[in-house]
């Protein structure tokens, strides 16, 4: 039996041999300090080269004047950020991004809570249903988005033909049928696709949370005569908190940074009227890579702020580990 398992070094050497102890201990200490490096070294190198170096380069680009063919004309201070702020559509893009993130994440969470509850019940075909849910997750997001774009084709799209057949759409090939050509309609279709591809991960995260709730808590609730709704509110939801926080956090970051859906379906068009900040960043790249980098820096800041706010709201503890 080992009552006390710690990583602390063994007790100090015998006092009768002070010299030998002093010679050995520092080397051992250095060795002990270096030892973890062997294990975390590759990870540090990886993080440094694929995360930190690009971040540094991004900041550097944002403060440089880069011309149309990619030549660096040196440091220009905040000029790229000033140019960014002068973009007439910036306010609309930022507002749209907020709507996009809030609506997609909320809708995803609500749908996933319901689905996870369903999948936590025993019913015939549950295994098949659970597998089926993986499909939108397993398929490439870009591919899913392209498929939806073709299904929404104004003349021959599957969805449009269906809407025409059931009488919702009076005529094919009209402006009304061109959902993705009208910014207001396009945004809602893309929100739909974003929810569709976000649901599997979220549902599985919540399902895992549900399965981790001990059965005896529910037994106690039954003995106390709690109603199913009361049980859900007072037991399931609070105990799901860690899973929900992880799901919301990851979804916010994913949806905020989401590129393929909008790019494949409208490329942010017409103009930049369906662009989020991520898409707008890419659109800016065609005219000014430095201004685009300035927006990347802003986006990067927003994500960091979101994460910090969220962790604060989650009670200061890092819930991501659970």
């Amino acid at each position: 039996m080992q009552p006390n398992v710690t990583l602390a070094p063994p007790p100090p050497p015998v006092p009768a041999e002070p010299c030998a102890g002093r010679r050995g201990t520092p080397r051992q200490r250095v060795w002990a300090a270096c030892q973890p490096l062997a294990w975390i070294g590759p990870a540090i190198v990886l993080i440094f080269s694929v995360v930190l170096v690009p971040v540094v380069l991004m900041f550097r680009t944002a403060f440089h004047d880069i011309d149309a063919v990619g030549f660096d004309r040196g440091f220009v201070g905040w000029a790229n950020f000033e140019a960014l702020l002068r973009e007439p559509s910036l306010a609309a893009v930022v507002t749209r991004t907020a709507v996009w993130v809030v609506v997609v994440v909320t809708a995803t969470m609500v749908c996933s809570l319901l689905l996870a509850q369903l999948f936590n019940q025993r019913f015939p075909g549950r295994r098949v249903a659970r597998w089926a849910l993986i499909a939108p997750w397993a398929a490439s997001v870009f591919m899913t988005a392209v498929v939806f774009r073709w299904m929404l084709d104004p003349r021959s799209g599957l969805i449009n033909i269906f809407l025409h057949d059931i009488g919702v759409l009076p005529e094919l090939g009209t402006a009304q049928a061109d959902w993705l050509g009208r910014p207001s309609a396009a945004l809602w279709w893309m929100i739909g696709v974003a929810v569709f591809v976000s649901i599997p991960f979220t549902t599985y995260a919540i399902l895992a949370g549900l399965q981790a709730i001990p059965a005896d808590v529910y037994e106690a609730a039954v003995l106390d005569g709690a109603s199913p709704w009361r049980t859900y509110r007072s037991i399931t939801l609070p105990l799901l908190r860690p899973a929900l926080l992880v799901a919301v956090l990851i979804n916010i970051m994913n949806v905020f940074n989401s590129f393929p859906i909008i790019w494949a379906m409208t490329a942010g068009g017409p103009g930049d009227q369906t662009a989020t900040t991520t898409i707008f960043m890419y659109q800016l790249k065609s005219s000014s890579i430095a201004e685009s980098a300035a927006l990347s820096v802003v986006n990067f800041g927003i994500v960091i702020v979101l994460v910090v706010l969220f962790l604060k709201a989650a009670g200061g503890r890092s819930q991501v580990q659970s």
């Binding site: 068009g269 103009g271 930049d272 009227q273």
Partner: peptide
């Protein structure tokens, strides 16, 4: 001119349809 290729043309392509 340089302005056309660098700034104006990309902006025209993206926005003039509006």
């Amino acid at each position: 001119d340089e302005k056309w290729t660098a700034t104006v043309l990309p902006a025209v392509k993206k926005n003039i349809g509006l």
